[in-house]
Amino acid sequence: MKILVTGAAGFIGSHLCEKLLQDPSNEVIGLDAFVQKSPTPVLVREYNLRYLLPHARFTFINQDLLHVPWSEILPGVDVVYHLAGMPGVRSSWGEDFKTYVTNNIEATQRLLEGCRTYPVSKIVYASTSSVYGEKTNQVNEASTTVPLSPYGVTKLTGEQLCKVYATKDDLPIVILRFFTVYGPRQRPDMAFHRFIQHIRQNKPIPIHGDGLQTRDFTFVGDCVEAIAATAHASNIIGETINIGGKERASVLDCIAILEELFDRKIDRQFLGKASGEPRHTWADISKAQSLLGYQPKTNLRTGLQAEIMDLSQTPYL
Protein backbone atom coordinates (compact mmCIF):
# COMPACT_ATOMS: atom_id res chain seq x y z
CA MET A 1 0.00 0.00 0.00
CA LYS A 2 1.29 3.46 -0.90
CA ILE A 3 0.48 6.04 1.76
CA LEU A 4 0.91 9.83 1.90
CA VAL A 5 1.23 11.46 5.34
CA THR A 6 1.10 15.26 5.48
CA GLY A 7 2.68 16.80 8.56
CA ALA A 8 5.07 13.84 8.69
CA ALA A 9 7.71 15.64 10.75
CA GLY A 10 5.27 16.62 13.47
CA PHE A 11 4.52 15.02 16.83
CA ILE A 12 1.76 12.64 15.73
CA GLY A 13 2.82 12.48 12.08
CA SER A 14 6.30 11.11 12.76
CA HIS A 15 4.91 8.42 15.08
CA LEU A 16 2.30 7.51 12.47
CA CYS A 17 4.92 7.09 9.72
CA GLU A 18 6.96 4.79 11.96
CA LYS A 19 3.86 2.75 12.77
CA LEU A 20 2.87 2.41 9.10
CA LEU A 21 6.39 1.28 8.14
CA GLN A 22 6.14 -1.65 10.54
CA ASP A 23 4.00 -3.26 7.84
CA PRO A 24 6.47 -4.46 5.16
CA SER A 25 3.84 -4.01 2.46
CA ASN A 26 3.60 -0.24 3.07
CA GLU A 27 5.49 2.50 1.26
CA VAL A 28 5.20 5.91 2.95
CA ILE A 29 5.63 9.38 1.48
CA GLY A 30 6.06 12.00 4.20
CA LEU A 31 5.27 15.62 3.36
CA ASP A 32 6.10 18.56 5.64
CA ALA A 33 6.62 22.27 4.98
CA PHE A 34 8.56 23.08 8.19
CA VAL A 35 6.29 26.11 8.63
CA GLN A 36 8.33 28.80 10.37
CA LYS A 37 5.50 30.06 12.62
CA SER A 38 4.67 26.58 13.90
CA PRO A 39 5.02 26.04 17.68
CA THR A 40 7.29 23.10 16.83
CA PRO A 41 10.74 24.49 15.86
CA VAL A 42 12.39 23.23 12.67
CA LEU A 43 15.18 21.64 14.74
CA VAL A 44 12.59 19.56 16.60
CA ARG A 45 10.89 18.43 13.40
CA GLU A 46 14.21 17.45 11.87
CA TYR A 47 14.92 15.40 14.99
CA ASN A 48 11.49 13.74 14.72
CA LEU A 49 12.53 12.37 11.31
CA ARG A 50 15.74 10.74 12.52
CA TYR A 51 14.39 7.16 12.31
CA LEU A 52 12.43 7.76 9.11
CA LEU A 53 14.90 9.33 6.70
CA PRO A 54 17.20 6.25 6.46
CA HIS A 55 14.26 3.89 5.90
CA ALA A 56 14.16 2.26 2.46
CA ARG A 57 10.37 2.51 2.16
CA PHE A 58 10.11 6.14 3.28
CA THR A 59 10.36 9.18 1.00
CA PHE A 60 10.43 12.68 2.50
CA ILE A 61 9.27 15.78 0.63
CA ASN A 62 9.93 19.18 2.21
CA GLN A 63 7.28 21.29 0.49
CA ASP A 64 4.28 23.49 1.21
CA LEU A 65 0.87 21.93 0.54
CA LEU A 66 -0.11 25.12 -1.29
CA HIS A 67 2.58 24.60 -3.92
CA VAL A 68 3.24 20.87 -4.09
CA PRO A 69 2.79 19.39 -7.61
CA TRP A 70 0.13 16.74 -7.03
CA SER A 71 0.75 15.19 -10.44
CA GLU A 72 4.14 14.03 -9.14
CA ILE A 73 2.91 12.67 -5.80
CA LEU A 74 -0.70 11.48 -5.75
CA PRO A 75 -0.81 9.06 -8.71
CA GLY A 76 -0.55 5.55 -7.24
CA VAL A 77 -1.26 6.68 -3.66
CA ASP A 78 -3.89 4.54 -1.90
CA VAL A 79 -4.42 6.39 1.40
CA VAL A 80 -3.84 10.01 2.40
CA TYR A 81 -3.44 10.93 6.07
CA HIS A 82 -3.83 14.69 6.38
CA LEU A 83 -2.17 15.65 9.67
CA ALA A 84 -0.51 18.86 8.48
CA GLY A 85 -1.77 22.09 9.96
CA MET A 86 -1.12 24.89 12.40
CA PRO A 87 -1.82 23.65 15.95
CA GLY A 88 -2.43 25.51 19.20
CA VAL A 89 -5.44 27.24 20.74
CA ARG A 90 -3.75 30.13 22.55
CA SER A 91 -1.68 31.38 19.61
CA SER A 92 -4.61 31.41 17.15
CA TRP A 93 -5.91 34.84 18.15
CA GLY A 94 -4.96 38.18 16.59
CA GLU A 95 -2.66 38.58 13.60
CA ASP A 96 -1.45 34.95 13.75
CA PHE A 97 -4.92 33.82 12.67
CA LYS A 98 -3.81 34.36 9.05
CA THR A 99 -1.32 31.51 9.46
CA TYR A 100 -4.12 29.24 10.69
CA VAL A 101 -6.31 30.13 7.72
CA THR A 102 -3.47 29.38 5.31
CA ASN A 103 -2.33 26.10 6.86
CA ASN A 104 -5.62 24.67 8.16
CA ILE A 105 -8.13 25.81 5.56
CA GLU A 106 -6.41 26.76 2.30
CA ALA A 107 -3.92 23.86 2.45
CA THR A 108 -6.74 21.39 3.15
CA GLN A 109 -8.76 22.70 0.21
CA ARG A 110 -5.80 22.32 -2.12
CA LEU A 111 -5.17 18.75 -0.97
CA LEU A 112 -8.82 17.91 -1.60
CA GLU A 113 -8.54 19.40 -5.08
CA GLY A 114 -5.50 17.19 -5.68
CA CYS A 115 -7.39 14.08 -4.54
CA ARG A 116 -10.28 15.08 -6.77
CA THR A 117 -7.93 15.04 -9.77
CA TYR A 118 -5.92 11.98 -8.71
CA PRO A 119 -8.36 9.71 -6.82
CA VAL A 120 -7.30 7.73 -3.73
CA SER A 121 -9.15 5.04 -1.78
CA LYS A 122 -9.22 6.94 1.55
CA ILE A 123 -8.53 10.44 2.88
CA VAL A 124 -8.21 10.62 6.66
CA TYR A 125 -8.52 14.15 8.05
CA ALA A 126 -7.03 14.81 11.47
CA SER A 127 -9.37 17.04 13.47
CA THR A 128 -9.61 17.87 17.16
CA SER A 129 -11.84 17.84 20.21
CA SER A 130 -11.58 21.65 20.07
CA VAL A 131 -14.44 21.64 17.55
CA TYR A 132 -16.89 20.63 20.31
CA GLY A 133 -16.32 23.66 22.53
CA GLU A 134 -17.62 23.64 26.11
CA LYS A 135 -19.35 20.40 27.09
CA THR A 136 -20.10 19.10 30.57
CA ASN A 137 -20.52 15.41 29.82
CA GLN A 138 -19.05 12.72 27.60
CA VAL A 139 -19.35 13.73 23.94
CA ASN A 140 -20.11 11.53 20.98
CA GLU A 141 -19.65 12.46 17.34
CA ALA A 142 -23.24 13.72 17.03
CA SER A 143 -22.67 16.41 19.68
CA THR A 144 -23.00 20.02 18.57
CA THR A 145 -19.82 21.73 17.41
CA VAL A 146 -19.27 25.18 18.94
CA PRO A 147 -15.52 25.96 18.90
CA LEU A 148 -14.20 28.38 21.52
CA SER A 149 -11.07 29.44 19.60
CA PRO A 150 -10.04 30.54 16.11
CA TYR A 151 -7.97 27.33 15.93
CA GLY A 152 -11.09 25.24 16.55
CA VAL A 153 -12.95 27.23 13.91
CA THR A 154 -10.27 26.49 11.27
CA LYS A 155 -10.25 22.76 12.07
CA LEU A 156 -14.04 22.60 11.90
CA THR A 157 -13.90 24.48 8.59
CA GLY A 158 -11.47 21.81 7.36
CA GLU A 159 -14.03 19.16 8.33
CA GLN A 160 -16.76 21.00 6.46
CA LEU A 161 -14.56 21.30 3.37
CA CYS A 162 -13.99 17.55 3.48
CA LYS A 163 -17.74 16.96 3.63
CA VAL A 164 -18.42 19.35 0.75
CA TYR A 165 -15.91 17.52 -1.46
CA ALA A 166 -17.27 14.17 -0.33
CA THR A 167 -20.75 15.25 -1.38
CA LYS A 168 -19.81 16.91 -4.67
CA ASP A 169 -16.99 14.65 -5.87
CA ASP A 170 -17.59 11.50 -3.83
CA LEU A 171 -14.21 11.83 -2.11
CA PRO A 172 -13.68 8.98 0.41
CA ILE A 173 -13.36 11.03 3.59
CA VAL A 174 -12.86 9.84 7.18
CA ILE A 175 -12.61 12.41 9.99
CA LEU A 176 -10.80 11.64 13.25
CA ARG A 177 -11.16 13.97 16.25
CA PHE A 178 -8.18 13.70 18.62
CA PHE A 179 -8.44 14.40 22.35
CA THR A 180 -5.30 15.91 24.00
CA VAL A 181 -2.57 13.68 22.59
CA TYR A 182 0.63 13.45 24.66
CA GLY A 183 3.79 11.35 24.92
CA PRO A 184 7.29 11.30 23.38
CA ARG A 185 7.93 14.15 20.89
CA GLN A 186 5.01 16.19 22.23
CA ARG A 187 5.09 19.76 20.94
CA PRO A 188 7.05 22.23 23.12
CA ASP A 189 3.99 24.46 23.56
CA MET A 190 1.85 21.67 25.07
CA ALA A 191 1.24 21.39 28.81
CA PHE A 192 3.05 18.17 29.73
CA HIS A 193 6.15 19.15 27.75
CA ARG A 194 6.23 22.54 29.51
CA PHE A 195 5.52 20.99 32.92
CA ILE A 196 8.37 18.49 32.61
CA GLN A 197 10.81 21.13 31.38
CA HIS A 198 9.93 23.44 34.26
CA ILE A 199 10.46 20.64 36.76
CA ARG A 200 13.84 19.77 35.25
CA GLN A 201 14.84 23.43 35.50
CA ASN A 202 13.52 23.77 39.08
CA LYS A 203 10.92 26.32 38.02
CA PRO A 204 7.29 26.45 39.22
CA ILE A 205 4.75 24.83 36.90
CA PRO A 206 2.49 27.47 35.27
CA ILE A 207 -1.19 26.54 35.65
CA HIS A 208 -3.94 28.38 33.79
CA GLY A 209 -7.06 28.67 35.93
CA ASP A 210 -7.56 26.62 39.10
CA GLY A 211 -6.07 23.35 37.83
CA LEU A 212 -9.34 21.47 38.25
CA GLN A 213 -10.06 21.50 34.53
CA THR A 214 -10.01 17.96 33.11
CA ARG A 215 -8.85 16.44 29.84
CA ASP A 216 -9.30 13.12 28.11
CA PHE A 217 -5.57 12.38 27.68
CA THR A 218 -4.63 10.18 24.70
CA PHE A 219 -1.19 8.57 24.57
CA VAL A 220 0.41 9.03 21.15
CA GLY A 221 1.06 5.31 20.74
CA ASP A 222 -2.64 4.57 21.22
CA CYS A 223 -3.58 7.43 18.91
CA VAL A 224 -1.48 6.16 16.00
CA GLU A 225 -2.85 2.64 16.45
CA ALA A 226 -6.28 4.09 15.78
CA ILE A 227 -5.11 6.20 12.83
CA ALA A 228 -3.26 3.30 11.20
CA ALA A 229 -6.30 1.03 11.64
CA THR A 230 -8.31 3.25 9.29
CA ALA A 231 -6.24 2.05 6.31
CA HIS A 232 -7.78 -1.43 6.40
CA ALA A 233 -11.07 -0.73 8.19
CA SER A 234 -14.19 -1.24 6.09
CA ASN A 235 -17.42 0.76 6.21
CA ILE A 236 -15.81 3.93 7.61
CA ILE A 237 -16.02 6.24 4.59
CA GLY A 238 -18.04 9.30 5.56
CA GLU A 239 -17.63 8.67 9.29
CA THR A 240 -16.46 11.09 12.00
CA ILE A 241 -14.72 9.24 14.83
CA ASN A 242 -13.52 10.36 18.28
CA ILE A 243 -10.06 9.17 19.35
CA GLY A 244 -9.79 9.53 23.13
CA GLY A 245 -7.55 8.01 25.76
CA LYS A 246 -7.54 5.49 28.56
CA GLU A 247 -7.60 7.99 31.39
CA ARG A 248 -9.26 11.33 32.11
CA ALA A 249 -7.73 13.55 34.78
CA SER A 250 -7.45 17.12 36.04
CA VAL A 251 -4.32 19.23 35.68
CA LEU A 252 -3.70 18.92 39.43
CA ASP A 253 -4.06 15.12 39.18
CA CYS A 254 -1.37 15.13 36.49
CA ILE A 255 0.96 17.25 38.60
CA ALA A 256 0.50 14.81 41.50
CA ILE A 257 1.61 11.97 39.17
CA LEU A 258 4.62 14.01 38.08
CA GLU A 259 5.53 14.56 41.74
CA GLU A 260 5.55 10.79 42.23
CA LEU A 261 7.61 10.20 39.10
CA PHE A 262 10.17 12.88 39.99
CA ASP A 263 9.97 11.97 43.68
CA ARG A 264 9.73 15.58 44.83
CA LYS A 265 7.28 18.35 45.60
CA ILE A 266 6.58 20.63 42.64
CA ASP A 267 5.87 24.34 43.00
CA ARG A 268 2.80 25.70 41.22
CA GLN A 269 2.27 29.13 39.67
CA PHE A 270 -1.42 29.86 39.12
CA LEU A 271 -2.19 32.14 36.17
CA GLY A 272 -5.37 33.54 34.66
CA LYS A 273 -7.71 31.29 32.68
CA ALA A 274 -6.57 30.74 29.09
CA SER A 275 -8.85 32.04 26.34
CA GLY A 276 -10.58 29.58 24.06
CA GLU A 277 -10.10 26.42 26.11
CA PRO A 278 -12.99 24.30 27.43
CA ARG A 279 -13.02 23.41 31.11
CA HIS A 280 -13.54 19.71 30.43
CA THR A 281 -13.13 17.22 27.58
CA TRP A 282 -14.40 13.66 27.65
CA ALA A 283 -14.62 11.43 24.59
CA ASP A 284 -17.15 8.76 23.86
CA ILE A 285 -14.94 6.32 21.91
CA SER A 286 -17.56 3.63 21.31
CA LYS A 287 -17.56 4.31 17.56
CA ALA A 288 -13.76 3.94 17.37
CA GLN A 289 -14.03 0.71 19.34
CA SER A 290 -16.70 -0.62 16.99
CA LEU A 291 -15.31 0.52 13.63
CA LEU A 292 -11.55 0.44 14.26
CA GLY A 293 -11.20 -2.13 17.03
CA TYR A 294 -9.65 0.70 19.04
CA GLN A 295 -8.81 0.13 22.68
CA PRO A 296 -6.44 2.61 24.37
CA LYS A 297 -3.94 0.73 26.53
CA THR A 298 -1.60 3.31 28.08
CA ASN A 299 -2.50 4.84 31.43
CA LEU A 300 -1.45 8.36 32.35
CA ARG A 301 1.38 7.38 34.68
CA THR A 302 3.00 5.11 32.09
CA GLY A 303 2.53 7.67 29.32
CA LEU A 304 4.03 10.50 31.38
CA GLN A 305 6.98 8.30 32.30
CA ALA A 306 7.60 7.69 28.59
CA GLU A 307 7.48 11.43 27.86
CA ILE A 308 9.88 12.21 30.71
CA MET A 309 12.31 9.58 29.42
CA ASP A 310 12.10 10.94 25.88
CA LEU A 311 12.78 14.53 26.98
CA SER A 312 15.73 13.42 29.11
CA GLN A 313 17.32 11.88 26.00
CA THR A 314 16.61 14.73 23.59
CA PRO A 315 19.94 16.38 22.65
CA TYR A 316 18.68 19.88 21.82
CA LEU A 317 17.08 20.47 25.25
Rank of each mutant, 00 (worst) to 15 (best):
M1R: 01
A9Y: 04
I12W: 06
L16Q: 13
L16C: 12
K19E: 14
D23F: 01
P24Y: 00
E27R: 03
K37W: 07
P41V: 13
V44L: 12
V44S: 03
R45F: 13
R45Y: 11
N48V: 14
R50I: 15
D64S: 13
H67A: 12
H67Q: 13
S71R: 12
I73Y: 12
I73R: 05
G76D: 02
G76C: 02
V79T: 15
P87H: 01
S91A: 15
E95F: 12
V101A: 03
A107P: 02
E113Q: 14
E113T: 06
G114A: 07
R116K: 14
T117I: 12
P119T: 04
S121N: 12
K122P: 12
I123N: 10
A126C: 11
S127C: 09
S129N: 05
T136N: 10
N137M: 09
N137C: 08
E141W: 07
A142N: 11
P147R: 00
P147T: 01
K155N: 07
T157K: 01
K163S: 15
Y165Q: 09
K168C: 09
D169E: 15
I175N: 05
F178T: 04
T180F: 14
V181S: 07
V181D: 02
G183C: 10
G183N: 04
P184Y: 05
Q186P: 07
Q186F: 07
P188A: 08
D189E: 15
M190D: 08
F192W: 12
H193G: 03
H193C: 11
R194T: 11
N202I: 00
D210G: 03
G211Y: 07
L212F: 10
Q213D: 13
T214F: 03
T214Y: 04
T218M: 06
F219W: 12
V220Y: 01
G221L: 08
C223K: 05
I237L: 13
I243S: 03
K246H: 11
E247P: 00
R248C: 09
L252M: 12
L258K: 08
L258P: 01
L261Y: 06
F262V: 01
P278S: 10
R279Y: 06
R279D: 01
H280C: 03
W282N: 14
A283K: 11
A283W: 11
L291M: 08
L292M: 08
Q295C: 12
T298H: 05
T298L: 05
L300F: 06
L300K: 05
R301Y: 05
T302F: 03
M309S: 14
D310Y: 15
Q313H: 15
L317Y: 12
